[in-house]
Computed example of a mutant assay.
Amino acid sequence: MIERTDVTGVLLAGGRGQRMGGVDKGWVEFDGLPLVTQVLQRLSPQVGRVVISANRHLGRYRRLGHAVVTDSLPDYPGPLAGVVGALREVSTPWILLAPVDMPWLPVDTLSRLSGAIGEADIAVAHDGRRLQPLVALIRSSLGADLSQWLAAGGGRVVSWYDRHRWIQVDFPAQEAQFANLNTPGEVELAGRAQGGHASSPGSCHE
């Protein structure tokens, strides 16, 4: 089992939020708290430290008490650009990716992925219906290859994973915890479903 101190959490908050009307999704409020705060509450206890990848409101993110990095490539080339930036701040052998719009991220994400990874370089969560490419445990030593691949025009997350030894790790009956809040409508519907409670119907209890 990989120890939490060997893992840096990389919180991906650098997207353009186009489906959310162009706003910075990390600061969209849901159930009384910004999404970034909710994801940090679930990610932070699983890892040794957290690095936030963001491209707007940098001072506001820094006030959360974590290192903040920005994309080194222009024009929002995708989430993997945020990963490259984060890896410059990482000294641990592993990183654990998490998107900022996933407020019910399973609290056993690291233990499930690390317990299954074996000799693979990357372990990716599967929620029972679909792969979740941005919930992944990745060897930090792959950073140089990722940087070169992006510079050569690569972009699709799974296409980069295909360059390495990667495995899918199933999270049975936890599909609800991998829900992304991508649009204002999804935030509103999720809030109604919550009924004012702090955890989703599909979430596990810590």
Rank of each mutant, 00 (worst) to 15 (best):
V39W: 04
G22D: 04
L105H: 03
D121N: 07
A120P: 01
S44H: 12
D145P: 03
G82R: 00
L35G: 04
G15R: 00
D71Q: 15
L87C: 13
A67H: 02
D127M: 06
T8W: 02
L97C: 12
L58N: 01
G115D: 01
P99H: 08
R19K: 14
D145S: 13
L40V: 08
W104D: 11
G65K: 02
P77N: 07
Y76C: 13
D145M: 03
A98S: 14
T8L: 13
R62L: 01
L73D: 03
A120I: 08
P34E: 06
N55F: 00
R63E: 15
D145W: 04
A67V: 10
H126N: 13
L150H: 07
A98G: 08
V23H: 08
H126K: 04
Q148C: 12
S141M: 02
L131T: 15
L146T: 11
Q38M: 15
S141C: 06
S111T: 12
R139F: 02
A123H: 05
P45G: 11
V83Y: 02
R62T: 02
G15A: 12
S72Q: 12
T70H: 00
H57M: 09
L80P: 09
D24M: 11
R130S: 13
V124E: 01
L110E: 04
R19N: 14
T92L: 13
I138Q: 10
G21N: 04
V50L: 13
F30C: 04
G17F: 14
R49P: 09
P99M: 03
L80K: 08
V36W: 00
I52R: 01
D31R: 14
L137Y: 02
A123L: 00
R62F: 00
L11F: 03
G14Y: 00
P45T: 12
G21D: 04
L12M: 14
L142P: 10
L40R: 06
M102K: 00
D75P: 02
V84Q: 08
W149L: 10
G118R: 04
R42L: 14
S91C: 11
I95W: 05
V68I: 00
W27Q: 01
A116H: 14
V10N: 05
I122T: 08
